[in-house]
Structure formats: structure tokens, C-alpha cells
Amino acid sequence: MRTDDKLDQMEERPADRARPPLMTRTRLWLFGGTLAVYAAIVVGVLTTSWLVTFDWQVMFFRPYKQWPEIHAFLDYFVVLGQRGPTAVAVAAWLGWRCWRQHNLHPLLVLGASLLLLNITVGAAKLGMGRLGPHYATQVGSTEMWLGGDIFPSGHTANAVVTWGVLAYLATTPLRRRTLSVIAALGALGVGMTTVYLGTHWVSDVLLGWAAGLLVMLSLPWLEPGITWVEDRLMGMLLRLWLRLRPDSLRGPLPADALAPGVSRQRIAPDGEVLVRETIGAGRVAATRAPDGWPHHPPRPHTSRSERSPVTPAGSRRPPHADRAARSTPLSPTSGRGRNGSG
């Protein structure tokens, strides 16, 4: 592949590149409504409302003891909300898409969403410091500011964002709607699984859903920054490719690359010089293509009438001492001797 073809391929923006939805009026209303729900959940827990009472009722119910037959399955299912395994799986898929589309947009969207998720959810966890059901200290209390880190639920928020990015980057409306439903059901299942296992309160899961949805709804605001970073990284990759590309992709040498008077010759196995020519200024030596065959620069094509006439000059084979030239007629004696009769 030549250098120009490689550069065109790296600068290509295919038609099937995902176009994320813009921040429309509907999305603004959803963002505002979700933010209001987020604040209402936090206020409900801080004021020890009915939400905290419901948390304790579910905890005393102990779902993992009510349905122990599904405990083993849910232990594996909850991994779909764990940050490490899910991020690696989705990053591998989006990395393949980056390779096919020749751009870094899918991976940058995933990185930006996870960064925003870790900042917002991590700050809320550390700021409120709520303890989980297994570490509760007083029945009916909110368990806030006691050094915990489970409010909001990180598993639930991560499931919303990680699998929601696939729907966000979908290339058609049908795929986006289908993946959105699948991501929502997966996040719902992960959140309910954490309640079943007793690792989170119900209010933790509700706040985790709201936190993940806020991150997804705010992604269009991050698109200008993602595009800026992508352009800079693609420029760095192009410069690195131009610097490290192999010599076989650099094309033919310039006309003045060889000094006048440089000679080259072709020598037969017996040491005889068959061809000798001098490459002067303006003549380009043949380069070596990746397949090993010499690549000659293009030359002007001349018609047959413009070519110099060829005159018969006899055989082009080098003369042998024991063979007479064809231009010399053979004597009858030598002919009989060659045929073995005499």
C-alpha cells in the first residue's frame, strides 16, 4: 500500500460512523426531570422519610433467603455491573469499531462517560458516606456519614452507562432503540440483584439509576471536547506514521537523489560483464517494492513509428571459441564431422 493510500485511509470518515443524538428539547426535559428525581431521593434519605423505612423492610425480608435457588446465578449476573470486566468487554468491542472506522470516537466516548461517572458517583459516595445493609449500626437510621461508600449504587450506575454507551453509539434509530431497551433491562436486573444479595439499600439502587442516566443524558455536551481530543490524537498518529512508515511506502526517489556518474553493471556467473550503464543526473534508479520485484518510475510511452529502427545484427549470444559464427558458412567437411559421418 502506498503512502498516499494509507494517509487517505487514516483520514477517512466513513458514512456509517455513529452520529449521537443532539441535546434536543426532549433530552433537556429528561435531564431536568432526572436531576429532580436525584435530588428528591437524596432529600428523602437525609430526612428519614418513608424511603428509609422501606429500605429497612426489604433488608429484614432478606430476599437471598427467600429464593436461595437463584443465588448462584445472580452471583455471576451481578458482574454485568462491575466496572472492570464490563469496561474491558465494551472497550474491546469499541476498539474493533475504531479499527474498522479509522477513528477514535467510540473509545473516546466510552472513556469520557466512565470518567464523568467516576467523578460524579465517586464524589457522592465519599461525600455522604452511607453504610450498607450488612454493616448497619442502628435500626431505622439513615446510616449516613459513617464512612461507607454505597450511596448511590456504583454497580447500577455503571451498568446504565457502560451498556448505554453501546446504544448511544448505534448507527441507526432501530439499533439505538433496541440497545436502549436491552441496556435498561440489564441495568434494572443488576440493581435488583444487589438488593437481593443484600449489598445495597433500595434507595441506593434508585439513586444509581438516576446517576447513570444523568451521565448518559449529558454526553452530547461532551461531544465538542471529544471531537477536539480526537482531532489532536489523529494528528499525532498521522505524524507518527509518517515518521515510522517503512521505506517501501515512501515512493520513488527524487530525480536528483543519485549523483551524476554513478555506475551499475550486471555480471554473469562466469564473471563476464553483460550490461554496464551510467546513471546521470535526472535518471532514477529502480526501487524495490514490498513483493521483492523492482519498481521502475513511469516513462513516456512512444509509438512504434517513433522508435528507432532495429537492424539485423546477427545472434546476441556471446561468441564461443569452439563455435563458428552464423554469418560464416559452414564447410562440407565440418558439417559431416558434426553429423558423425565422414
Rank of each mutant, 00 (worst) to 15 (best):
H296P: 10
A268E: 11
L253A: 14
H301E: 14
W293M: 13
P220M: 07
W228N: 09
M216D: 02
G225F: 13
Q265M: 12
L214T: 05
R239L: 10
P224A: 10
A289R: 12
D247L: 03
L217G: 00
R288Q: 15
P290F: 07
H295K: 14
R283C: 05
T287R: 13
P224E: 08
P246S: 15
W221F: 14
A285R: 08
E277I: 04
S218Y: 07
P260D: 03
L207C: 03
G225W: 15
G251Y: 01
R276I: 11
G271N: 01
V310C: 03
R250P: 00
L213N: 12
G208C: 06
H296A: 15
V229Y: 01
V229T: 06
P260G: 01
W221N: 07
L222R: 02
W228P: 01
T227P: 00
V284T: 13
S218H: 11
W221Q: 10
D247Q: 03
T311R: 13
P298Y: 06
S308H: 15
L238C: 06
P220N: 06
A259D: 03
P224D: 10
L233G: 01
V284W: 02
G292L: 12
L258P: 00
G225M: 14
P290K: 08
P254C: 08
T287N: 10
G251T: 05
G235V: 08
E277H: 13
R283P: 00
A286T: 14
D291L: 08
V215E: 02
R276Y: 13
A268I: 04
W209T: 00
A259T: 05
G292H: 14
R288L: 15
D291W: 09
A285Q: 14
M234H: 09
S308L: 15
L244F: 11
L217E: 04
L249F: 02
W228E: 08
P294Q: 11
A281R: 11
L222S: 09
V284L: 07
E277M: 10
H295D: 15
P298G: 10
R250F: 00
R250L: 05
R299Y: 11
T227E: 12
T287E: 11
W241G: 08
L274G: 06
R232Q: 15
L214K: 00
E277W: 12
P297G: 08
L207Q: 05
V310D: 05
S303Y: 07
G261R: 01
L233N: 02
G282A: 11
R304D: 14
P246D: 15
G280R: 04
L244R: 12
E306I: 06
L258E: 06
P220D: 04
P252C: 03
G212M: 05
E230A: 02
A259C: 00
G271T: 02
L244S: 13
P246R: 14
L258D: 09
P297N: 06
T278A: 09
A211T: 06
D256V: 04
P252H: 11
P260R: 01
M234E: 14
P294L: 15
A259E: 05
L237T: 07
M236P: 03
R304C: 06
G261E: 02
R283H: 10
E306L: 12
W293A: 14
V310Q: 09
P220W: 02
P300T: 12
G271F: 01
W209N: 00
L219G: 00
L207H: 05
